[in-house]
């Protein structure tokens, strides 16, 4: 059994070795976002899996991996055949590796893609628009495995959209809503949700930018501008006008979570 990491043994070299020696067996790759495998028979790829993808599409995705632990087990036979074992396939694999080399996607495919407002007018093709819509809120790996377009097609479009700044890849986060107790604030202010400065900093770090605080009570939902204050742990300060508008009263519990502006 052979094992290692693609960061140290690039997949291209690994396949060249296995295919050159006409090996029969399975190469298992454990990427943080999905698991993949490639079955060889007489040095030819006969079946590939990557997440939900099968066959050449799976192979296309695997050729884009630059890191991830792998292990090769000799003698393991594929249960199914999704790739024709011919010379053409080998050329196709080489072509895929070359195509991936032109693409500069972030190494971390766990990053979440977020659409960004365009700073200038940009003309997008229908394909680019569809990929943009598909990618919103998904991790890079999920976007590449969209099953509507091939991974390479998607990767090329994503690369362009990221370079244009229409998409941004951010760290994956899971923001849990907080249950906060409403506290009355006096004065003429409105549209403000006063939260503890610790919570403000925490949410800001998670989102990496300005955000709204979205509130949900039993009957209402609203988004307010956050304002950090000291000694507000577990509380949500609201001006009287907002409390009346949202039909909230002091001491009521509301669910609150941040939303990117």
């Amino acid at each position: 059994m052979l094992s290692g990491n693609l960061a140290e043994f690039p997949l291209l070299q690994l396949l060249e070795t296995l295919m050159g020696a006409a090996r029969e067996g399975a190469l298992f790759i454990q990427h943080p976002q999905f698991s993949g495998c490639l079955y060889l028979q007489g040095g030819y790829p006969v079946h590939a899996e990557a997440g939900p993808l099968r066959g050449l599409e799976a192979l296309e995705l695997l050729t884009g991996l630059r890191s991830g632990p792998f292990r090769y087990e000799a003698g393991v036979q594929a249960q199914e055949q999704s790739i024709e074992p011919r010379l053409e396939t080998q050329r196709l694999i080489l072509h895929q590796f070359e195509a991936w080399r032109e693409i500069e996607l972030p190494e971390n495919w766990g990053l979440v893609l977020q659409t960004q407002p365009a700073s200038s007018q940009t003309q997008l093709s229908p394909l680019e628009l569809r990929v943009l819509a598909l990618a919103e809120g998904k991790s890079l790996a999920q976007a590449l495995m969209n099953q509507q377009f091939t991974p390479l097609q998607t990767a090329q479009v994503l690369d362009k959209l990221l370079r244009l700044g229409l998409l941004e890849a951010r760290k994956s986060w899971e923001i849990q809503s907080e249950t906060l107790v409403v506290l009355s604030l006096y004065g003429g202010g409105q549209g403000v949700a006063v939260i503890d400065e610790g919570l403000f900093v925490h949410w800001q770090r998670l989102l990496g930018g300005p955000f709204w605080v979205r509130l949900r009570s039993k009957t209402q939902e609203a988004a307010l501008r956050p304002e950090p204050r000291i000694q507000m742990q577990g509380r949500l300060g609201l001006f009287e006008r907002d409390m009346r508008r949202l039909r909230l009263s002091r001491g009521m519990r509301v669910e609150a979570w941040p939303e990117l502006i």
Partner: peptide
């Protein structure tokens, strides 16, 4: 008195 139900809720201290 009106906020008596919050009597055991501190502001973090």
């Amino acid at each position: 008195v009106g906020a008596i139900r919050e009597r055991f809720l501190s502001f973090g201290g």
